[in-house]
Simulated scan of single mutants.
Amino acid sequence: MSEQYPPASSQPGGAPQYSGGPQYGGTPNGPVPGRTLGIVGLILAFLLSPVGLVLSIVAMVQSRKAGAKNGFALAGIIIGIIGTIIIIVSIIAIAALAGAAGEAFNEVCGQLGSGVHEQDGITFTCP
């Protein structure tokens, strides 16, 4: 048995060109789909972590559909996750501290009664 090759067609200059070969998403040195979005996602992951995380995920999906790797998108996802976790923990801590400060204020006002009071250089205005 002999192997069958697609028919050759000639181009100007006499070089044969084969048609019907495997089709790839681009040349090895061509643009990677989602790469620019991955870079933007990585930068935003440092500044606005949740937004950078979402953009990096979209860039990764675009790159994977094209069969390409996207290190920028991966880095943006990792940094975005870490940054988002830090933001969430910070919000919870601030809320807990604000609640504790409110309770302390109510306790002081309960002891002092309503009106304006000064204690240790701090002025309390209790309802």
Rank of each mutant, 00 (worst) to 15 (best):
F105A: 10
I85D: 08
G99D: 14
L74C: 00
T123K: 08
G13L: 06
G34R: 03
I94L: 14
L44A: 04
D120M: 14
S2C: 03
Q119T: 14
C126E: 05
F72T: 01
N70V: 02
F105S: 09
V61D: 02
R35N: 11
Q62N: 08
G71S: 13
F105K: 10
I79S: 08
S49F: 04
K69G: 13
A15F: 11
Y24C: 02
N70E: 03
P127E: 08
L97N: 15
R64N: 12
S63L: 00
E118L: 05
G83N: 07
F46K: 02
I81Y: 01
V61E: 00
A8E: 09
Q11L: 15
M60E: 13
G38Q: 05
S10H: 10
G38V: 05
I78R: 06
P12T: 06
A104V: 09
A66C: 07
G25L: 00
G102L: 09
S114F: 08
Q23L: 13
V61N: 10
A15G: 05
A68E: 12
G20T: 02
G110F: 06
P50T: 01
S10D: 13
I78Q: 00
V108K: 14
I39W: 11
G67L: 10
L74D: 05
G30T: 01
G20Y: 09
P127F: 02
L47A: 15
I79G: 00
G30Y: 03
G76M: 01
